[in-house]
Design a protein around this nucleic acid. Structure first.
Length: 562
RNA sequence: UGGCCGGUAGUUCAAUUGGCAGAACGCCUGAUUUUGGUUCAGGAGGUCGCAGGUUCGAUCCCUGCCCGGCCAGCCA
């Protein structure tokens, strides 16, 4: 069986695995473990779903069990095949292989048959009240509900009516099938919940075969039971549905042991939203170019953005699972992204805000090839040649006419290292009418080729550069927090009020020639700047995955605050 | 307003029948470094939601209260 989560550190497993261990100890499911990941195909998966995916597939792997991907497609109105295909893709991208891809709609026949059996047992009835009336008669938290006038129809009458619903004898919304439980139950879910409704909508899989569709409550537990799921793991908001989940299964003849539902807290992240509804709105409103916009917290979005699947998995492993409502700092996720990318990403040089640096004593027209290390964390990544000349692009930020305290970079009279190149000393700078630096002049020391002085003298900093004569032009998309509020929508506010107007910025960057060569989606480190992903479709576009930790930024922030 | 679920460093999670409150990320200091990155060493940071009670001893057990989340769709 497994190592990582079961025996490694007894007592440090999460409460769900603890429960599974307990079930295995009593032989409740004969030692069998089966889970499922059950998305509704009405949108694409987001980072919050990744927690559930890792949990369900992770548990199955840990216990040598089974985990299927099941589409909860009981509401045809919002669902479609594109979402199904996208979700299958996303799960695979995250690194999981479902034992099988199944659909709640596969079980429509069985679900229907079970509904008839419930009717025969006098436990369900057809209600003629309309939706508003049903809602009004449900009562409130402190007031009892009111029985429907149709609650006591005979099984025969109910059966005939239910078949009529199925056969198209009634209009949409004219009748529903309800469980007959208790209109006075303290749990609102138990006040005769709706089991079937009439909806003349085209279903992405069953087409027009059905005009009645089961509700979540009538479909979910039964689907679990049909598939022989043992541990049905869902999010906290289904907690009040658990008695209903159990009630349904209790009154049917099941092919397997009764599955048990366990709820855990969904993943929230600061400065973003993990709600399909809100993400859909961002797409519909045109704030995002699509579900796969690199700013979207969707799996497709973060993939375009360059988040490695392995880093997401490591993050999910780290945060664990509990019942405490929680919002993780998005910085924690980013630290996992950096850890993964630091080990794997090739280093390259790119200048995001180019400033011309002229080496005044460089031999006219000469081009030098400098050897640069591809990844200091990984010797096997090798080296590359980078062309060097008398005119270079350097980062605007790397030169100051008037350096603030603790500024180590280029400034008149100071010597710095050009990475893998030479030591240079700034001599002068040209400025425009507003005093902005337009060009910097320097001299280089030919004896420092490769970046080291034979006399052993040191420099305080190393800066990156790109040869002006060889630079590739590219668009680099910089991203900031999607929402300025760490908790968008907190305190009853409209989450969209805190949409960050500066969430994206595109700059015209200069890249070293080797960057002409990256594969679509490949993530590289632009030295001293961060990790950047080549766009999936356009080789001349890069997306900032995440910046490097930036101590200089911290120093400046501190100075500002003091 | 009733019920259910929660409340432990800034954040998220740990703490094996009641026994000196820990980790990760973030922050700070130092070392290393041809990335102000990485790595390494150290540091600051807690009224265990509050108040009572039981006990030699309570984050843990009991009672009351406070705060947060969820539930009154023919969404899932």
């Amino acid at each position: 069986m497994s190592s990582e989560h079961t025996d490694e550190a007894a007592g440090s497993v999460d409460f769900i695995r603890e429960k599974i261990n307990a079930d295995n100890a009593t032989g409740k499911f004969g030692g069998r473990v089966q889970t499922r990941f059950p998305p509704e195909p009405n949108g694409y998966l987001h980072i919050g779903h990744a927690k559930s995916i890792c949990l369900n597939f992770g548990i199955a792997a840990d216990y040598d069990g089974v985990c299927k991907l099941r589409f909860d497609d009981t509401n045809p109105e919002a669902e479609d095949q594109d979402f199904v295909d996208g979700i299958i893709e996303d799960v695979a991208w995250l690194g999981f292989a479902p034992d099988e891809v199944v659909y709640a709609s596969d079980y429509f026949d069985q679900l229907y048959a079970w509904a008839e059996s419930l009717i025969e047992r006098g436990l369900a009835y057809v209600d003629d009240q309309d939706a508003e009336t049903i809602s009004a008669n449900r009562g409130g938290f402190t007031t009892p509900g009111v029985d429907s006038p149709w609650r006591d129809r005979t099984p025969e009458e109910n059966l005939a009516l239910f078949r009529g619903m199925r056969d198209g004898e009634f209009a949409d919304g004219e009748k529903v099938l309800r469980a007959k439980i208790d209109m006075n139950h303290e749990n609102m879910q138990m006040r005769d919940p709706v089991l079937y409704r009439i909806r003349r909508a085209h279903h992405h899989r069953t087409g027009d075969q059905w005009i009645i569709y089961p509700t979540y409550d009538w479909a979910h537990g039964q689907s679990d039971a049909i598939e022989a799921v043992t541990h049905s793991i869902c999010t906290l908001e289904f907690d009040t549905h658990r008695p209903l989940y159990d009630w349904c299964l209790e009154h049917l003849d099941l092919p397997h042991e009764t599955p048990e539902q366990t709820e855990f807290a969904r993943l929230n992240l600061t400065h973003t939203v993990t709600s399909k509804r809100k993400l859909k709105q961002l797409v519909d409103d045109g704030v995002m170019s699509g579900w796969d916009d690199a700013l979207m917290p969707t799996l497709r979005g973060v993939r375009r953005r360059g988040y490695p699947a392995a880093a997401i998995r490591a993050f999910m492993d780290h945060i664990g699972v509990a019942k405490t409502n929680s919002t993780h700092d998005i910085e924690l996720l980013e630290s996992f992204i950096r850890t993964e990318l630091n080990a794997t990403a090739l280093r390259r040089m790119a200048v995001l805000r180019p400033l011309k640096l002229i080496i005044t004593n460089w031999p006219d027209g000469e081009v030098d090839l400098r050897e640069a290390i591809n990844n200091p964390e990984d010797d096997s990544a090798g080296v590359r040649q980078v062309p060097f000349g008398g005119a270079l692009w350097i980062e605007e930020d790397d030169f100051r006419l008037d350096p603030p305290p603790k500024y180590y970079r280029l400034t008149p009279g100071r010597e710095v290292r050009l990475r893998a190149g030479y030591f240079v000393t700034a001599t002068d700078a040209a400025t425009d009418a507003d005093g902005n630096v337009t060009e910097v002049y320097c001299t280089y020391d030919p004896a420092t080729a490769g970046g080291q002085a034979p006399d052993g003298r040191k420099v305080k900093s190393t800066i990156h550069w790109v040869s002006a004569a060889h630079a590739i032009d590219a668009t680099v998309n910089l991203y900031n927090r999607l929402f300025t509020d760490p908790h968008p929508g907190s305190g009853g506010s409209d989450p969209f009020d805190s949409l960050n107007p500066e969430a994206r910025e595109a700059v015209a960057a200069k890249l070293e020639p080797a960057l002409g060569d990256v594969a679509p989606g490949q993530v590289v480190q632009f030295e001293r700047l961060g990790y950047f992903a080549a766009d999936l479709d356009d080789a001349r576009v890069f997306h900032r995955t995440v910046g490097l930790r930036d101590e200089w930024a911290n120093i400046q922030k501190r100075r500002q605050n003091s």
